[in-house]
């Protein structure tokens, strides 16, 4: 029993650290989840569909983008491509974090289903002085996952009683949210050029050709602009 004790305490300690680290992000996600659910039902999704999307996709950015451009019937390939563009960052995040976790290969394939920007960033910070354990990761993942599925579903149920989101400007909330998220990427020259080119190309394509093509064309133009603006000095 004595030998089991240190292990148990380190497990508990790591789980506690995970809960403590993720709490601010989880609390901040509640109103955003409620909003997501409310706007999603405004776009024609049922609360069950909202719950299913949150449970299976579990990626805020991709879900926001999908709902913002949602039409019925759903354009499956365009949505899949948009989701890929938004989530492709996960490849680099996962590659960076994987060696810093104390998990078996099978555990990693389960654990990384739950990888979010928040849990990734917190784990990278924790990995600076100790490995990321299963207890730490599981505590963060469980809180964020239950939090996200519950708040988005609740938002969907409440939203169906509230009616048209445009009445209180909730239709603009995503636009404002995305502007806030973009600001988080800073004001470097490359970022500003990327944002400007992407915005102009997306607006033009949306005006002359229509949804959902503005997302891919605007994004690809912005990425190309970043590649060109970064210039040869970045390659040195």
């Amino acid at each position: 029993m004595d030998q089991a004790n240190p292990h148990m305490t380190s497990y508990k300690r790591d789980a506690k650290a995970g809960l403590r680290d993720i709490a601010p992000a989880a609390i901040a996600a509640i109103p955003i989840g409620l909003l997501f659910g409310a706007v999603a039902v405004g776009k024609g999704l049922s609360p069950a569909e909202v719950a299913l999307m949150s449970a299976l996709v579990f990626a805020g950015g991709a879900q926001f983008a999908a709902i913002e451009t949602w039409v019925s019937p759903a354009p499956v390939l365009a949505l899949a491509f948009g989701t890929f563009l938004i989530n492709v960052r996960h490849v680099l995040m996962g590659a960076s974090l994987s060696p810093k976790t104390r998990l078996s290969r099978v555990e990693k394939f389960i654990a990384f289903f739950f990888m979010t920007d928040e849990s990734w960033a917190l784990s990278e910070r924790r990995a600076l002085d100790r490995p990321v354990t299963a207890a730490y990761w599981a505590a963060m993942a469980a809180v964020l996952y239950i939090n996200w599925v519950t708040s988005t579903t609740l938002g969907a149920v409440l939203g169906s009683f509230l009616g048209d989101p445009a009445r209180f400007g909730a239709d603009f909330a995503f636009t404002a949210l995305f502007i806030g998220l973009v600001a988080g990427f800073g004001r470097s020259r490359v970022t500003l050029v990327t944002v400007a080119v992407s915005a102009v190309v997306a607006a033009l394509v949306h005006y002359f050709i229509g949804a959902p093509w503005h997302v891919a064309s605007g994004a690809l133009a912005g990425i190309a602009a970043a590649y060109i603006t970064a210039g040869k000095e970045a390659d040195a």
């Binding site: 950015g61 926001f64 983008a65 913002e68 451009t69 948009g82 563009l85 938004i86 492709v88 960052r89 603009f172 995503f174 636009t175 995305f178 502007i179 998220l181 973009v182 990427f185 490359v190 970022t191 990327t194 944002v195 992407s198 915005a199 102009v200 190309v201 997306a202 607006a203 949306h206 005006y207 949804a211 503005h214 997302v215 891919a216 064309s217 605007g218 994004a219 690809l220 133009a221 912005g222 990425i223 602009a225 970043a226 590649y227």
Partner: peptide, 15 residues
């Protein structure tokens, strides 16, 4: 540049 480029492209028509 992928995340900001995508986010901006999504909202550009509304904005």
């Amino acid at each position: 540049a992928i995340p900001p480029a995508v986010l901006v492209a999504v909202i550009a028509p509304t904005a």
